[in-house]
């Protein structure tokens, strides 16, 4: 479903702040795979997601989604195949617009927008049922401004928006990192439910090793712009945090694993 071929990305090229974010990354995702992507700060995991989504143009290499080369497509064109949820709950939704207006915008992703009315009565009923499945009590507050919602509610809504029109690829960029632990668990449960029910091909970036091990059927670890580990199937199911750390130690040639953010799992 997704093929990333020999992608390079360097920021601030030619200056003292030069930073190689992606160093010859290749990655293939089959249809229905749920991949967790883990790595420390600056490992390039968010950059990879942003390159796939078209936020950043790649320096070299190609990105293929479902057989179509999207490497040169602008962000809003690629969006028709992608569902995205961001780390910051403020970024995934339009705060000054109503819940139903946000959903209606997402429902039209990839469609040509016209001068037809922005939301229909039939859609409204559909959204109400859909919000009911979240069990957050949002189904009776369709016309509430999204800015009034909590971070967790906003992320749950953003998830719904990302998957409302079934994406070929779902990109989750640490979408629970800004939430309190209890809410994070709830949003992750909703995530798993939606991904499983719709058999969505998913790439989920996380800081949290336990989450990376617990969710999905394949785990990828990045370090300094490269893929260090790629574990799937039975091996992934048996994985523990300790084993992941020791394998990281070997793979990164004895380099100390000092990233607090990764150890804090």
């Amino acid at each position: 479903m997704l093929a990333v071929n020999n992608v390079y990305k360097t920021f601030n090229s030619g200056t003292v702040n030069e930073k190689t974010a992606l160093n010859n990354i290749s990655l293939h995702l089959g249809a229905g795979e749920f991949v967790t992507l883990i790595g420390g700060n600056g490992s390039g995991k968010s950059t990879l997601l942003n390159c796939i989504a078209g936020v950043h143009a790649v320096d070299k290499g190609s990105i293929i989604i479902d057989g179509v080369d999207v490497t040169r497509q602008p962000e809003h064109v690629r969006a028709k195949d992608l569902g995205r949820v961001f780390q910051d709950p403020m970024l995934g939704t339009a705060a000054d617009m109503q819940i139903e207006e946000n959903l209606a915008l997402a429902y039209r992703r990839g469609k040509r927008r016209s001068l037809r009315w922005g939301i229909t009565a039939k859609e409204r009923r559909f959204y109400r049922d859909l919000l009911g499945t979240l069990e957050l009590g949002l189904e009776d507050r369709l016309s509430l401004k999204v800015g009034m919602l909590s971070g967790g509610q906003r992320q749950a809504l953003a998830l719904l928006m990302a998957t409302l029109k079934e994406p070929k690829l779902l990109l989750l960029d640490e979408h629970t990192a800004a939430l309190d632990p209890k809410t994070a668990v709830k949003v992750l449960e909703i995530t798993e439910k939606i991904v499983m029910e719709n058999k969505l091909t998913t790439l989920m970036v996380t800081h949290n090793m336990r989450d990376a091990i617990r969710y999905g059927n394949r785990l990828i670890m990045m370090h300094e712009g490269r893929i260090l580990l790629d574990i799937e199937g039975e091996a992934k199911k048996k994985l523990t945090v300790e084993e992941l750390l020791s394998r990281f130690g070997q793979a990164s040639s004895g380099e100390e694993f000092t990233q607090d953010s990764v150890l804090l799992s």
């Binding site: 809003h76 064109v77 969006a79 000054d96 997402a106 469609k111």
Partner: peptide
């Protein structure tokens, strides 16, 4: 309206 409110979200929803 979505563009003015949150342009990143608008692009992610396929809006030019």
């Amino acid at each position: 309206r979505a563009t003015g409110n949150n342009s990143q979200m608008a692009r992610a929803q396929g809006i030019n």
